[in-house]
Design a protein around this nucleic acid. Sequence first.
DNA 1: ATTGTATATTGGTTGAACCATTGAATGACT
DNA 2: AGTCATTCAATGGTTCAACCAATATACAAT
Lengths: 257, 257
Amino acid sequence: MSTPSEMANKVFSKKNQMGNSTSKVALRPVNRSRLHEEIVSQIQRKIISGEIKAGEKLPAERELAVELGVNRATLREAVKKLEAQGLVEVRHGDGVYVKDFLESENLDVLKAMIYHEGGVDSTIIDSLLIARIALLPEIAAVAAVKRKDEHVQKLKEIVELGKNMPALEADLAVHHTIARASENYLVIFILNFFNKLFREYGKYYFDDPQNEERSRKFHREIFSAIARGDAPRAKRIMRDVLIYARERTMNAMRKSL
Amino acid sequence: MSTPSEMANKVFSKKNQMGNSTSKVALRPVNRSRLHEEIVSQIQRKIISGEIKAGEKLPAERELAVELGVNRATLREAVKKLEAQGLVEVRHGDGVYVKDFLESENLDVLKAMIYHEGGVDSTIIDSLLIARIALLPEIAAVAAVKRKDEHVQKLKEIVELGKNMPALEADLAVHHTIARASENYLVIFILNFFNKLFREYGKYYFDDPQNEERSRKFHREIFSAIARGDAPRAKRIMRDVLIYARERTMNAMRKSL
DNA sequence: ATTGTATATTGGTTGAACCATTGAATGACT
DNA sequence: AGTCATTCAATGGTTCAACCAATATACAAT
């Protein structure tokens, strides 16, 4: 809740609103993409689309820099990011080789795979929803067993004050709290990934009043179950809502195609 | 099986063996850490250990470069990697800010959290083993339902020829194949993470002949279940072996402390 | 055929300079 | 006192030109 980026997102210059300072304008961050980020996107896309295959050697840095119209130092910064994503392997004195992105462990790559060629890949989305169903009920049960005042209190606040905040934000907070309560670090990291995705694209789900109401009900029930330490009930409640969400989400995606 | 790094690992100069060309010498890769990687490790460690807290601003690049005794371009390459890991946020004209690493989604960070201050953090290891138990049985069931000849054949080969390869390698291959068979991309990525960890540190587990035999048995049984499309059985077999592995692993870690 | 050597290629690092953005200090104006 | 625009110093972003270090390759020597 207090990372620099989130703090920064709450501040914007009034000048950009062109006098429309009171109404809620849907502002998107200015595209001030840094050069090396633009390069990362380009190469990342070519790798994930299969245009560049695993095992191939990229052109030499000096060549690539000329081709892209940037300085070699800038290109190198991009290559370092690609290396951190596990998409390329750099060999001193030899060259930069493309790796098999399906052998990656970097969820940024998975995210890029979702949004390839304009649309979203519903197959990958479904794999996320399925994994969530397998994982989170168990984690909810663990949270109910370990329950600490800190987390129960946090859930209570979300349920009580949550009516004043968007359903999406309340939902992200509930999952975040349960993950923290479970003290399972892998799940915490995976949930960070989920929540970042949902923060960008989950609004469509909560636009449906029926889904929002289902979500509010889930918040009340899971809080109750965890507060009482009823692990089996927490597990079932979590499972039910995730199965519901998967069905609704996949149906919506099917319709939009 | 064909990433550049793995191909490279099978090739080495005989000169490094200093005339001992026939005996099996335990050679470790020369530590030819590039400067920017050394820098990444240093700063990563300081962030994860809490020495640098979330929200703090790092010294200016020009200062930091002098302090580390490297050129600013080199430092910047390191910062780009840290940024890709979600550990810092760079703001043009302002500075480099440390982010809360518990809000990261990068499993490299989780790996670094495991190996902090010399030893391994058994709490995090256990969270991996728990998540694995929640996740993989369901994925084994999916694999049994979707079963394709390609994957069944691969499992058969591993079971038949696996006796000639180390149990660790056979085990990694089995899990890899099942993940691919499930076609669940998130699980594939998470399993890439697991397998990379186990390839480094799983040998201790398979040093125990009892564990190795248990693993071979698992390979035979899961192959049989998936080949017959028996999803419930595949699920149970996977679950049983993972629970066994968790108990043995955690017991071993407790003893070594 | 094997081994050693020279060379070109490629990534790694350096130093200096300049551009672009930001935050804070300043001062004018209300 | 508070608000606003201006100025300016600090900081990240990019460029340029070199040189260092590791590697692959071709070639010569054996």
